[in-house]
Simulated scan of single mutants.
Amino acid sequence: MPADHRPLALFLMGPTASGKTALACALSERFPLGLISVDSALVYRGLNIGAAKPDAATLARYPHELIDIRDPAEPYSAADFSVDAQAAMRRIGEAGRIPLLVGGTGLYFRALQRGLSSLPEADAELRAQLAEEAAGIGWDGMHRRLAEFDPAAAARIKPGDAQRIQRALEVIALTGKPLSDQQQGGRQQPFPWRVLKLALLPQDRAPLHARIARRFEDMLRDGLLDEVRALRQRGDLKPDLPAIRAVGYRQAWEYLDGLYDAAQLRDRGIFATRQLAKRQITWLRGEWDARGLDPDRPDLLARAAGAVALFLGHDRGRTGL
């Protein structure tokens, strides 16, 4: 097998509140790394408290690319991220450093490394037609229809998942091809970097859940509602924008709309964050080539640094491990 001469890169992935940023900063003290954020909320300016954005002192000491690069009124896609991240990775490499991409947005990691399939844009008229049909036969009936045209997609999509059923049927109607066939597309050439993936996967979720609850309560004390009030006062932001749909912001927005009280805001925010963490962990378990690390082990930094040192070709003496 020929030698792999691609430049090196690190992916540090994990659920929300697992300590990814702290570990990334600690690793950058030991190795010549340049940090890149992989977070769909941190790209937006003005989303600070609720997005758990690193504070100014941390960012001054450990600069991160791809933080505060969009106004919250501007959507930012996985395709946008892929372009921006590769440019950042090249800049870091040209500066003689190794890019370390750190975050929890699985779709961004996947789009970057594997590419995205080319699917048609949404068609409002067709969606309205599908919704009308669903009103007559129910989404279970629409799911059975999907199973006729695309059994593989129907096997992945639950009968009650109206949004994904509608999208799958929409793609079939627009292209004449099953959605599952088209999702096999993506990157045709090898990813330009050779990657070590580190995944923070808690063996016991109780400490993670406790951190999630504590962090959301801290966000409320630190002024999350004031932050969301300021976003609302702009007048150009609506709750259907990706920035406002982010966990924590959506619940705070609804609270300010009077949909529930302060206790419900706390409970809903914590529950939504736990659900996000659950989805992230499920995705990470599918990353078969990632090295799993328990974020609650006291030797986390030593284990992560050892894996990085081996990957980068450092000996233990030079890294001080």
Results as ranks from 00 to 15, higher is better:
186 G>I: 06
255 Y>R: 02
276 L>S: 02
115 G>S: 14
67 I>L: 03
18 S>V: 10
62 Y>Q: 13
16 T>L: 04
130 L>I: 04
213 A>I: 00
268 R>Q: 06
273 T>K: 11
128 A>Y: 11
152 A>D: 08
205 R>Q: 04
279 R>T: 04
79 A>G: 13
275 Q>E: 09
37 S>W: 13
99 P>L: 04
29 E>N: 09
145 R>D: 12
147 A>P: 06
251 Q>M: 11
98 I>M: 10
139 W>Y: 09
24 A>M: 06
53 K>P: 08
69 I>P: 09
217 E>W: 05
226 D>P: 07
105 T>C: 09
56 A>G: 09
117 S>N: 12
294 D>A: 04
119 L>V: 07
318 R>N: 01
296 D>K: 01
203 Q>C: 12
88 A>E: 14
81 F>H: 15
261 D>Y: 00
255 Y>W: 06
292 G>S: 03
155 A>N: 03
252 A>R: 00
69 I>K: 09
128 A>W: 11
209 H>Y: 13
308 V>N: 01
280 Q>S: 02
231 L>M: 05
245 R>S: 02
299 D>H: 00
128 A>S: 12
198 L>K: 04
316 R>Q: 08
266 R>L: 10
94 E>A: 14
85 A>L: 14
61 R>A: 15
145 R>M: 13
6 R>T: 10
97 R>D: 07
107 L>G: 14
81 F>C: 15
179 L>P: 09
266 R>P: 04
200 L>Q: 13
152 A>C: 06
200 L>K: 08
190 P>R: 04
299 D>K: 03
68 D>P: 12
5 H>G: 07
126 L>I: 02
264 Q>F: 06
162 A>W: 10
289 D>N: 00
111 A>I: 03
